[in-house]
Simulated scan of single mutants.
Amino acid sequence: MLHKKLKAFPQDFLWGASTSAYQVEGANLEDGKGPSCQDVKEVPEGTSDLTVCADQYHRYKEDIALMAEMGFKAYRFSIAWTRILPQGIGEVNPKGIEYYNNVINECLKYGIEPIVTMFHFDMPAALDEKGSWSNRESVDWFLNFAKVMYENFGDRVKYWLTINEQNVLTLSGPVIGTLHLPEGCTNELKEIYQQNHHMLVAQAKAMALCHEMLPGAKIGPAPNISLVYPASCKPEDILAAQNYNAVRNWLYLDMAVYGVYN
């Protein structure tokens, strides 16, 4: 269909940008932050580590002022699990709470809507040692993390995203270095999909808790959706595309929306 006349974007459309904590903050072990899987992994020679990155931890005021100058209406950023809970569970780090309070307040000062991603590829290293997402307790770990965030930031954050690109974590975990398999694992694919299931359950519980604690907030998943087209009109190509869409896309959306596996 050719649209010769396009509707204007609504005034409240959220134009903005997105980052993840470990990719921009730097200060990866400062002010009480514990190590995540990103901090303990082996960095290839000639590649920067996470001590500086874009230095947003120290330059957030400057960065957000630039966003305002560019006309941003929203800033989606992730909260580093170990900056809030250095061991993943247990004691809360007040410096981490303070930092994200400052970021949120700075956004609001310029009329920029803060959109929080709860988990973006940075499982606490201490929880990796306990089995990571393979451990059924990971559901409770994530729910506790969500509760701490809702309690501290929910009065100002109205938009929440649960797990960033969970389908990428599942389909490409070994490639991007986020997959932690338990010792003695003999069936990697089965283990990956068990982890995927735990993430889906954790996400569902975090969504339910959000609606309970923050009834005015909106929450949803952040999967990496990309429609798969058949190579031709042959039935086998159409079936292949449908199968790949189920694995690549619909599984994650169906679970979030309907609570069932595709």
Rank of each mutant, 00 (worst) to 15 (best):
S20V: 15
E183F: 00
R83C: 08
M199V: 06
V168M: 06
A8F: 06
I192E: 09
Q56H: 14
Y150I: 07
D155K: 10
L253Y: 12
L200H: 04
V260T: 15
F142W: 09
H211A: 11
I79R: 08
T51N: 02
E113A: 04
S36W: 11
L85T: 12
A240S: 13
G90T: 04
K147H: 12
E165W: 14
Y60W: 04
Y150L: 14
S20D: 10
A17D: 01
I89A: 09
F119Y: 15
I104W: 01
P86N: 06
D155S: 14
W81L: 03
D49R: 10
D237L: 05
K41E: 10
Y22E: 10
M67F: 12
I79C: 06
H58F: 05
P182G: 07
K4M: 13
A146H: 03
K33Y: 01
H180K: 13
V260A: 02
V175F: 11
F153Y: 15
L2M: 09
L181V: 04
D12R: 05
K41H: 03
N167T: 12
M70N: 00
Y100F: 10
T170L: 12
G32L: 00
T19R: 03
A65F: 01
E183P: 00
Y258I: 01
N152D: 02
R59D: 03
G216I: 15
E45V: 04
A80N: 07
R59T: 15
N93S: 04
N135C: 02
D140I: 00
A80C: 08
D155A: 11
L161W: 09
F13W: 06
E151H: 06
N262L: 09
Q194A: 06
C53V: 13
L6E: 05
G96Y: 02
W81Y: 05
Q242M: 13
E191Y: 02
E62V: 03
V260G: 00
K190M: 08
P94N: 11
M70Q: 00
E98A: 15
E91P: 04
V157K: 00
E42W: 07
K190A: 09
L179W: 09
N224P: 01
E191N: 02
N135F: 06
I89N: 14
L85N: 13
N101S: 12
A241V: 11
E113V: 15
Q23C: 04
G184Y: 00
H197F: 08
K158T: 15
H120R: 05
P124V: 11
P94D: 11
R76S: 09
A208S: 14
I112H: 01
E62Y: 08
G220I: 15
Q242C: 14
K205D: 07
G177V: 00
L181R: 13
M149L: 14
Y229T: 13
N28T: 01
E129W: 08
L227A: 09
S172R: 10
H197R: 03
E165H: 11
N101H: 12
E165G: 10
L127G: 05
S132I: 01
L189Q: 15
L227C: 07
N245P: 09
L214F: 08
A17L: 14
K158S: 04
S172H: 07
R248Q: 13
L127D: 06
